[in-house]
Amino acid sequence: MIEAEGLTKVFRDKKRVEVRAVDGVSFRVEPGQIYGLLGANGAGKTTTLRLLATLLKPTSGAATVAGFDVVRQAHEVRKQVGFLAASTALYGRLTARETITYFGRLNGLGDPEIAVRTRRLTEELDMGEFIDRRTDKFSTGMKQKVSIARTLIHDPAVMIFDEPTLGLDVLAARTIVRFIRDCRERGKTVIYSTHVMSEVEKLCDVIGIVHGGRIRAEGTLDALRARFGQRDMEEIFVAAVGGESALARQDVPPATTR
């Protein structure tokens, strides 16, 4: 379960001008549900997810993840969360197994338990061939599998994905999409950001359209279609943010600090 209430994050840019990267965002994600944050680059998706993953502290507003407060119980929140982003790379000089073991230990698991879970994940993700090889020589798809295993080793209740398919080829992207569906089937709470319209259509139970740090529209795909009188997700998106001119005017400085 994820609950965000008036979540706000204000950065100062180089000229000390305030930038409201996330501006009063509220939503709710139930277990067994996939919530999709859909938005253009710089809309505030990454910052929102970083706030939930406790990488950043909110300027105001509150959020709980699996019942824990992201500010006061950040440590507990991190134990409940699996965070996978295009910006969460692997340690190239460690083998896949060492990587998974490392994160297992940091999550407080004992070595016997880590060994059992690693064996299961290796089978599920078909990593047997490269589990004991260093990750710096891996293909993108192999790396993605190791990253998935890394986020799953402690069996978190909540999964946070920040543009996980960014820069992946079709095959690797499909692995990710399949994996996200699996998470839902296992009853995990999933929040997921992307700017790829088709992924949202395929995956999400609830869609939040983000623009300029705010949620402009929210609902199931059917509800959004009904509300905007459009079938195509792209058309719905453009309508929700207030037309193409509003999109083009997005001179809001990027909220992501990548």
């Binding site: 993953a53 406790t54 990488l55 440590h75 991190r78 134990k79 969360v81 965070f83 982003a85 910006s87 969460t88 790379a89 692997l90 340690y91 190239g92 994160f103 940091l106 999550n107 407080g108 890394r150």
Partner: peptide
């Protein structure tokens, strides 16, 4: 630079 900082920061290590 290698992008592993975020990976480690979102783990429950203090």
């Amino acid at each position: 630079e290698r992008g592993t900082m975020e990976t480690i920061l979102c783990s429950p290590v203090g």
